[in-house]
């Protein structure tokens, strides 16, 4: 497997698309920080670095979906996967080596974004939160990136068509994101809600709080909470701090590990049985 890893990484380093992905990840963050700084200078808006420090949790899976599909799809489109099998490399090793290089590529994309945040963001806005908290949350987000890498590896290793792999991977990221938003909105519905009614004097009066029928209760709520934490879409929202602070880092990491193990295990099993052309 060492040989396969050496070959995969050598191909990664000389892949133009990989460096374009790195530039996009770094550039997006530099642009976002610049905009926030201009906003701060012009309108005096108080912006904080920690609000945008983890946005690679959103950009990362999108850039990864494109790059990893192309990277893995090339093995099928150019037929080079056959070269590995013909000379006796085991299918499980080929799958794991690809998973590792995909995970590494995802982490490097995230690091490119994070390093720009730290290099430009700290001088611009300073850092209000403790360094330990940043490190802990960064690690948590990295696990989510690895879970996405495992999902894209599964798709890339089982689909013959590069175009199909790219399309499915991109749609999956946005699909996860949309499902995550819907689940989050359902969970955020208040338990009690009040209405405003117009009184006889023509004034608006707030009614007594009534139970909200949209509020999820019991098993249904637990199930939605599980989906929110387990599905990568919900994790994007939690890890990027887009909607709320997450205090479930450990649970999220556990679910990420579950994703990696399930997709890698299932992927290897299916890849072993796959008839290649």
């Amino acid at each position: 497997m060492r040989n396969l890893l050496a070959a995969n990484f050598a191909r990664l380093w000389r892949d133009k698309l990989f460096w374009i992905g790195m530039a996009v990840m770094a550039g997006l963050q530099a642009f976002e920080l610049s905009m926030l700084y201009v906003e701060h200078l012009q309108y005096g808006v108080e912006n904080h670095l920690e609000n945008v420090l983890y946005v690679y949790g959103v950009f990362g899976p999108i850039v990864m979906s494109v790059f990893l599909s192309m990277f893995l799809g090339t093995e099928y489109s150019d037929g080079t996967l056959r070269n590995k099998l013909i000379v006796g490399q085991r299918r499980s090793h080929i799958y794991l080596a690809n998973l590792m290089v995909c995970g590494a590529a995802g982490l490097l994309f995230s690091l490119a974004n994070l390093l720009v945040s730290l290099a430009l963001g700290i001088p611009m806005f300073g850092l209000r939160v403790p360094v330990l908290s940043v490190v802990t949350h960064t690690l948590c987000t990295f696990f989510m990136i690895l879970a996405f890498a495992a999902i894209f590896t599964l798709i890339g290793m089982l689909c013959h068509s590069k175009a199909f792999t790219v399309a499915v991977s991109i749609l999956l990221v946005f699909g996860f994101f949309m499902v995550g938003l819907v689940v989050k909105q359902c969970l955020m519905a208040p338990e009690m809600e009040s209405h405003y009614e117009m009184s006889v004097d023509g004034e608006f009066v707030e009614t007594d709080p009534q139970p909200n029928p949209k509020y999820l209760r019991g098993t249904k709520r637990k199930f939605y909470e599980f989906l929110d934490q387990f599905l990568p879409g919900g994790q994007i929202l939690a890890n990027s701090r887009m909607m709320e602070e997450s205090d479930n880092d450990r649970t999220l990491v556990l679910y990420d590990v579950v994703w990696v193990v399930l997709t890698a295990g299932g992927g290897i099993l299916l890849f072993q049985r796959k008839d290649l052309k």
Partner: peptide
């Protein structure tokens, strides 16, 4: 098998280097 299995975006030498790495 059927069509040659080669990375189209690489040169002949780079392709062989890649195969040499796979073979260790």
């Amino acid at each position: 098998v059927e069509t040659p299995s080669i990375y189209l975006n690489m040169t002949a030498e780079e392709n062989l280097k890649e195969q040499y790495r796979i073979l260790g």
